[in-house]
């Protein structure tokens, strides 16, 4: 099908000048998406990219697809309406940590709970960029920003944990500059039938530069990242010599392979594994653990928009297509001569 459509990256590049700050991580994400879309086997006119407000939310303008730049936090509402009206469309959301988890928090959890077949790319830079540098719901505690000169006090959300809590059926993480991996995740999200939540670590070089350096710097990233692959053991490290297993009390621990410890002692990733395991993964982070990237969870559940139309079809079959005259005359009529 891909060859039939003959789409290339060029088909998805709009004529709008990209206006992110030079050096912004958003450029890498845009590039990865524009490279991935032609490979998904979906006709160009069926893509709709919806966004809220924020730097990331300029995304639709740069994609030569149908696009809707909506209100702060409200992309899930618009996107849900689009998908319900036409389940045949491939609906994507470009959002940020403030847009999705703060002002739009209510909408995002309900989209995930309902399992609306929509692909959410949450660009997480742990800062408010477009409003020029206030802390965000994913900023680390104690962060000094324009609005928190003495350090922030509130605890950050762990986005993956939140998504799991909202019963997301697809949960993944990727990194802006790790393009090949990001494209894999985007493809997996597209293939998933249901709501797909992707946290994409993204560097804001103006207001929060270096926030993800330990994951982006090729010299150290392999020691700090755990690349998840379904059915494969949890191995990481530059020399792929470290792994993760659990103690008897289900506590994760990092072990050095060798000296009697083999891959067989390690946890094997299961995308459809028990929630306890998934929550454990979602909470791993440096310095004690590597941060997992890739598809954390992928599980099957009915899709909301499809179910809504199936129900409608079922009723039509059972009761017959609606007849307006009959409807108007329902509920007891009488005739005046």
């Amino acid at each position: 099908m891909t060859t039939e459509l003959k789409l290339t990256k060029k088909d998805f590049v709009s004529d709008q000048m990209v206006r992110w700050c030079p050096g912004c991580g958003d450029y890498s994400i845009l590039n990865a998406v524009q490279q991935t879309f032609p490979e998904l086997g979906i006709p160009k006119e069926k893509f709709v990219v919806v966004s809220g407000i924020g730097c990331s939310s300029r995304f639709p303008y740069y994609m030569d697809t149908y696009g809707f730049h909506s209100l702060h936090g409200r992309a899930p509402a618009i996107a849900t309406g689009i998908k319900l009206a036409n389940p045949d469309l491939s609906v994507w959301i470009a959002t940020g940590d403030g847009d999705a988890l703060s002002i739009g928090g209510n909408h995002i959890i309900h989209l995930l709970r309902r399992n609306v077949d929509i692909k959410i790319m949450m660009f997480d830079n742990r800062i408010y960029g477009l409003t020029k540098g206030q802390y965000s719901p994913t900023s680390e505690t104690g962060k000094r920003t324009k609005s928190t000169p003495y350090g922030s006090l509130d605890r950050p959300f762990r986005a993956l944990e939140l998504a799991l809590g909202a019963q997301a059926t697809f949960v993944a993480r990727a990194i802006d500059t790790y393009g090949a991996h990001l494209k894999e995740v985007l493809k997996a999200a597209s293939d998933h039938k249901g709501a797909s939540f992707m946290q994409i670590y993204q560097n804001c070089n103006i207001f929060n530069d270096g926030a993800f350096e330990q994951y982006r710097d090729k010299k150290v990233r392999d020691d700090n990242l755990l690349e998840l692959r379904h059915g494969e053991p949890l191995i990481f490290g530059k020399d792929r010599d470290k792994g993760i297993r659990t103690t008897d009390c289900y506590q994760p621990e990092v072990v050095q392979l060798g000296n009697g410890i083999t891959e067989k002692d390690l946890l094997v990733h299961d995308e459809d594994g028990p929630l306890g395991y998934l929550y454990m993964l979602a909470n791993l982070e440096p310095p004690d653990f590597p941060a997992p990237i890739g598809v954390l969870r992928k599980t099957k559940a009915p899709c909301f928009a499809a179910a809504a139309h199936e129900q409608m079809d079922y009723v039509k079959e059972k009761e017959g297509e609606g007849d307006l005259e009959q409807l108007l005359k329902s509920g007891g009529t009488w005739v005046v001569e």
């Binding site: 618009i78 996107a79 849900t80 309406g81």
Partner: peptide, 13 residues
């Protein structure tokens, strides 16, 4: 908010 938002999305579609 989501009620009207979804309606606008459906109108777009």
């Amino acid at each position: 908010i989501a009620g009207i938002g979804a309606a606008i999305g459906a109108a777009y579609a």
